[in-house]
Design a protein around this nucleic acid. Sequence first.
DNA 1: GTAGGATCTCAAGCGTACTTGAGGTCAAGA
DNA 2: TCTTGACCTCAAGTACGCTTGAGATCCTAC
Lengths: 162, 162
Amino acid sequence: MNPAHEPDELLTIGEMSRRTGVAASALRYYEELGLVGSVRTAGNQRRYPRHMLRRVSLISVAKRLGMPLSDVKDAFGEVPMESTPSHADWQRASRRWKKKLEERRSAIERLENELTGCIGCGCLSLKACALLNPDDALAATGAGPRRLEVAAEDEEFAGDEQ
Amino acid sequence: MNPAHEPDELLTIGEMSRRTGVAASALRYYEELGLVGSVRTAGNQRRYPRHMLRRVSLISVAKRLGMPLSDVKDAFGEVPMESTPSHADWQRASRRWKKKLEERRSAIERLENELTGCIGCGCLSLKACALLNPDDALAATGAGPRRLEVAAEDEEFAGDEQ
DNA sequence: GTAGGATCTCAAGCGTACTTGAGGTCAAGA
DNA sequence: TCTTGACCTCAAGTACGCTTGAGATCCTAC
């Protein structure tokens, strides 16, 4: 097989960068934050174990989803950096990631649902809309704490319409 | 009714801040960016028409979802700031928002689905996983361009496992 | 052994999204 | 009227997430 696939092959920062699409400067920054790790050559250059590719890939996906790096670090949890993570390590991490993703997704879904209703009725400016009249409608349906931040408009449109 | 609910009542920046949970300094900043608008009193203080509450609430929701302010401005599109937006104005805006939200949600869902598989098999470190072996599995299922950025790891784990 | 691209550190700069502070004005109640 | 809290502008500062540049070293191929 291709010698590039040896399990213990170490990658240079340039190789990491090319393979993950993440700039070398960003990789150094991530290392500074403790998001990734590397070993050094005798000449002080970084060498990355292959499993770091996975970490970096997950970091860049998370970034695209708007997750702050602190959360990302969090999400990695106990996944080790010095040794190749075990099956169980990644399993635990997967669960953490799922949880974080679910949170984000459900926030989006809630907003989407509210907007969907509004596309039909144009209600973002109409008092008939439940979204904008939580006292009338939401209270009756036992809606929770406050519907997103849109709830900041709770009292709106009681007598407002023009 | 409560005089605070008069349709043409104007709100001070402090009232806006309290009701939306957005700091006054942030409101000024949004105005600078053209995301919200206000009228001024004779003494140069800002007064907000009530429909600005809606704009501000949407801005803060979008922010929570990681949308940059430039996108938010975009998403408001033609919704007028000088006059109370019409039914049609908000309808158009709702569609734009929905589109943006859908994009984000589907990206999250894709990642979630991949991780769901992984929770079962812990495959983030196992070569049997389709996610990590697009050549074996994805190619066969006709998977598209590249599965998120995790595809950066395409060549991984061909001989890797420890 | 040597040229030259890759890498190193450290400091500074940048874009986004604000906050803070100084110094001054406005507005509403006693 | 006077006071006092809310508000104003403008400049500077902050946090995050990097990038850029300088000056030096590494390392691989010839």
